[in-house]
């Protein structure tokens, strides 16, 4: 590496080292440091005994799982529909991309009007006769998980759709022609050509969204208050409400480990080149 290139990279490197790497390292240090000095695992023991923490871990994984399933399903459906050049493709693409830019807190506000007890989803379902009495969409834990995942999916499905659309566009059309000549059905073409060749795009969408889903914060907080703790909101409440930086750091450390495990698994499965393309 020549000196000139080093000089150009230095400001960015120093900034990220000082404001990102050092803080994360000091959070890790905080999570294992005893108040009187020395190393301890007490903070981890304490949160492990806190029932809200166990709930937060399960909720984080569940919201991520439900959200990702919805996003991949809807994103793939939208991408496949758009790639088939239907009538009005341009206008549909513009409309489908709209939520992408909407701020997360606005997504939360919007979803409160949709999922409120006197909200619009209940009104539509009442009119359709699907329900008799209004549903409290964040009233039980199962429903709240579903509602938060749907709100998340509303905002980020367009991103998944864009990634998958790029993946679909990279599949050579000749493959489908050849398959048709050989008499393959639409379903056979999908299973034998589209799905395998779309795998890099699918895994990329999965990991990119998966990591963001683990870090979810604003949506559960704004939609359910304290009703549905996830790891980020748990760390936030421990520090800002209970003034306990150690347990907050410990739960952040658990979140970091979960993310690293997910990224590590991905790199192992997909190979580093796939991330860097």
């Amino acid at each position: 590496m020549r000196p000139r290139e080093l000089v150009g990279l230095l400001p960015l490197a120093l900034y990220l080292a000082g404001f990102t790497v050092v803080p994360v390292a000091s959070t890790l240090a905080l999570s294992v440091s005893a108040p009187g000095g020395g190393i301890t695992l007490d903070h981890f023991r304490r949160i492990a005994g806190h029932y809200q923490f166990g709930e937060a871990v399960v909720n984080t994984v569940a919201v991520a799982g439900i959200g990702l399933a919805l996003e991949l399903l809807l994103g793939l459906a939208a991408a496949l529909a758009l790639i088939g050049r239907p009538a009005g493709r341009k206008i549909f693409q513009v409309l489908l991309l709209v939520p992408l830019g909407v701020p997360t807190i606005v997504a939360a506000a919007v979803m409160r009007t949709v999922f409120g007890t006197v909200g619009y989803l209940n009104e539509i379902l009442l009119r359709l006769g699907a329900i008799r009495t209004p549903v409290d969409w964040v009233g039980t834990r199962g429903l709240a998980l579903f509602t938060v995942a749907v709100a998340d999916a509303w905002k980020v499905t367009p991103l998944v759709m864009l990634i998958l659309l790029a993946g679909l566009q990279a599949i050579p059309g000749e493959l489908y022609e050849a398959a048709r000549t050989d008499g393959a059905s639409r379903w056979q073409q999908f299973a034998a050509i589209t799905l395998p060749l779309l795998k890099p795009a699918l895994t990329m969408a999965l990991i990119v969204r998966g990591v963001d889903a683990f870090r979810i914060f604003a949506l559960p907080l704004a939609l359910t208050g304290r009703g549905l703790p996830v790891l980020s909101t748990y760390a936030y409440v421990e520090y800002l409400e209970y003034g306990n930086p150690h347990t907050s750091a410990a739960s952040s450390a658990i979140l970091l480990i979960m993310i690293l495990l997910a990224v590590g698994t991905y790199l192992k499965l997909a190979g580093p080149e796939e991330v860097l393309r």
Binding site: L9, T27, L231, S232, V263
Partner: peptide, 26 residues
């Protein structure tokens, strides 16, 4: 070199905000 550094940036991007926010706030 480029891939190594981009991978580093990718990993930095994956860090949870709560673990950055806490010491930064302090």
């Amino acid at each position: 070199w480029r891939y190594g550094i981009l991978l580093g940036l990718f990993l930095v991007r994956m860090l949870p905000e709560v673990s950055i926010a806490l010491p930064v706030a302090v």
